[in-house]
């Protein structure tokens, strides 16, 4: 089996933070449900962007790209924990003080996967 996954980010907004577009479930609680997140590093990190937990892009900050790198750099068991935790949580459960401007150390699901 051959599997190739490419993800490329092309900068177009200078060094400013790009928050990204929010999904229906980003606000308002349980009445606004999100579809099931893909249980991959990319899918989990898109859920964080959709939920206004992290920005799409932030120069020298924790953004979508560094989120994917963070998960992919973890051991298999930690990856599973982080991805499952993100996929199972509501947006408000994923948010932390200061979202979307925070570091991965603040995020509960990353804490669960070990720092």
């Amino acid at each position: 089996m051959t599997s190739v996954l490419l993800a490329a980010a092309a900068c177009s907004a200078g060094d400013d933070t790009v928050d990204g577009t929010r999904a229906a479930c980003a606000e308002g609680g349980a009445l606004n449900a999100c579809p099931e997140a893909a249980r991959t590093p990319e899918g989990a990190c898109w859920r964080l962007v959709d939920c206004a937990v992290i920005p799409v892009r932030k120069a020298n900050g924790f953004d979508w790209g560094s989120c994917v790198s963070r998960i992919e750099g973890a051991t298999d068991d930690r990856q599973r924990l982080m991805i499952d935790c993100i996929a199972s949580s509501s947006c408000d459960a994923l948010k932390v003080n200061g979202s979307p401007d925070n570091t991965f150390q603040d995020l509960v699901c990353f804490e669960l996967g070990g720092k």
Partner: peptide, 15 residues
């Protein structure tokens, strides 16, 4: 394309 940021992804699997 999210706020001007472009993300491309491709997946090919074959058996």
């Amino acid at each position: 394309v999210d706020q001007g940021q472009l993300f491309l992804g491709a997946q090919f699997s074959a058996t």
